[in-house]
Design a protein around this nucleic acid. Structure first.
Lengths: 216, 216, 216, 216
DNA sequence: AATGAATGAGTCTTCATTCAT
DNA sequence: GATGAATGAAGACTCATTCAT
């Protein structure tokens, strides 16, 4: 599921500083976990399947993670943290609120579209139970929402967005639209381009956010 | 997959009053299933818990349903069918596309807000696995989306909505915004009124759908 | 391991009030547990072995006991409770302290000698760990010791036993001697009669307990 | 099964001082094993715990011992061998049978009282299974019993002990009384002096052993 | 000699499903 | 139809042991 899978041939025997294996296993396990969850579902995911796919023994997983649940959680957190870091990096230097929303929408759809396994996990497995989702949502999802809400507020302050709607409502609509788009996509058999939907969605939302006078 | 597809001995059509007990059990089981799923999650829901709550023996469930999965599916289908029937009834006679969207948004949020168990199931449990969600989505969710898309297309044809966006995109945004609102709500500890959010959401979407000239 | 083992033929099909099976299973499990512990040791005893021997499925054990440990504990408690009840019944009406000690010694050795499995469990498995033994000792063993100590004190009060030794020390010696005898016996390959040792042990202890003047 | 039966590279005989480290590890492991067994029980003792306490790596244990069981056995044998050697040394030069029994009783209780871990192991862990105890008993315990029995026979030959009881019964009573005393002690929360019990026990046994005419 | 990361066999426990009553 | 005791397959987790370094 990642470069260098697990074949014995992969490790060059005489590598000088080598140890590309150091600390590589936990990540291999997390990657395998995402893949297996995407395929079989969170609760159907068997530890032995994840171990197989990571190319380690079952017991090895317990050297790095306390139990199954903690490992699955770590996999999801790790994947989302990467996603969030990418988003932050891409927004660096983009100041126009409209442009920021465009960038976020594009990143969201492009990021999910690139890694279908990840998308499956986020759209479906993440929402297995209120309890589960709540835990995730209170930590990382909030950060993402805040990114959107701040952008909306900035636009409202600067007058490019109408100020008579709550930033929370707007963020919900924006995120909800993107989210639903991804859900439709993973459920669809056809393999259309997800990121192509970014422009019309943003267009619709920005249109809805226009200040009455500001005809774009 | 609908009522009465299982028992060879159908409900006697004309039974006067004792019929309360006749055929009442399957529905008690379905209601119990929704409640238990909402509390513990789809995959955590135990057959014996559902039987307990329905006031029947474990084995009784297998008189009406082939297995656990079929029973849970039936529970969700039944709940959603009720929801959809309500929506259709409420739209009866409403012709203005903007008014129809307002009605749908209100019904969606009000319906979910009234039955938190049901909302929990739809927002989280329903999306446990791509496979699961796909099955549901291809049957019933499509009907709901079609209701929205038809309304949007009607508005576009009559000129009250701008026609330069795909009705699918609009439906996604509309449904996504409502959906996300409900998710936020069930995750929130506070017990605010969900249906109060209907107006601003519809306002935002309608604003985004305005034809350039049509200042509402 | 007990009458009527588990064969399907055992239950007469037309037994009138029948239900000799009612509540029979837990006891079959407890008996099987004692036997398996005696054979393989407490910590080596596998739940599946006990289930096999009791003629039930593995899962059945968990209908009656919370987990393996609780079941093993219950088996030991139950066996000892029976033993204690027998001792009490046999002492009924015996008032002479010397006779009471003789009866106890005989019962102890005879009871253990009759059920080698039980003896093995008490002499070895029961003492697996200080923590384990402490729990048992504080509940049931104390009762047994008290039976001995009361008899000793009665003999001291009535003047048939010398009063210059603590009843606790005497009980320790008495019980210790019996206990060690049983241990030797279960460890011995030869199959000598255990209860034959009762007389000389009691003789020795009574001789040690004689008041100086009382030459028997 | 005795020291130095395992390493092909024996301890260099004349190494001046660095020898502290040489061959010191096996003993550290044995000591750690006794301590860990005393704390957690024989079957609960984990190899990694013992390695930790001995300050070596898990794998190191397998340089000196074939497997876990052999190591635990070696630990117990080693501890008991020390105990037995002490007893033999202390009996050196004591010829009076009564005095020899007094010495043995004192050594037994004092030795156990000094090292609670050791006492815990002997009183409880040693008796985990008939198979286990039998192996130990046939090697070392017999030696200890023989020490007692020879003393008893000597007393009987010289006429200070009555001759109408088997030396085996007497040894059982004597050892059983001491043994039970130690068991009571390790189970007791209070920290009373164990060796204080030596005198009354010996007194009781000697009293029981008195020849009719010999009033001590 | 020493390490400790990795292994994987072994077991308890859960729970959907059956079926005799 | 209804029951619920019994079943047994399935899977998470532990830990003694190995072996490359």
């Amino acid at each position: 599921m990642k470069p260098a899978d697990k074949s014995p041939v992969a490790t060059p025997p005489n590598e000088p500083r080598a140890s590309q294996a150091r600390g590589e296993k936990p990540q291999r396990i997390l990657d395998a976990a995402i893949a297996v969850i995407a395929e079989t579902g969170y609760f159907q995911a068997r530890v032995s399947d994840i171990a197989d796919r990571a190319g380690v023994a079952d017991g090895t997983i317990y050297l790095y993670f306390k139990n199954k649940e903690q490992m699955l959680m770590a996999a999801i957190h790790s994947a989302f943290a990467t996603f969030l870091a990418n988003a932050r990096a891409a927004l660096e230097g983009v100041t126009d609120p409209r442009e920021r929303l465009r960038t976020l929408a594009f990143l969201h759809l492009e990021g999910m579209g690139r890694n279908r396994s990840l998308a499956v996990v986020f759209q479906t497995e993440l929402r297995q139970s209120a309890k589960f989702l709540r835990q995730f949502s209170q930590e990382q999802l909030i950060e993402y929402f805040d990114l959107i809400r701040e952008t909306v507020r900035a636009g409202q302050r600067s007058g490019v967005f109408r100020a008579d709607v709550s930033d929370k409502i707007v963020a919900n609509c924006f995120f909800g639209a993107l989210d639903e788009m991804v859900t439709s996509w993973i459920l669809s058999e056809r393999d259309y381009s997800l990121k192509g939907a970014a422009a019309p969605i943003v267009d619709l939302v920005l249109h809805g956010l226009n200040t009455p006078e500001a005809k774009p």
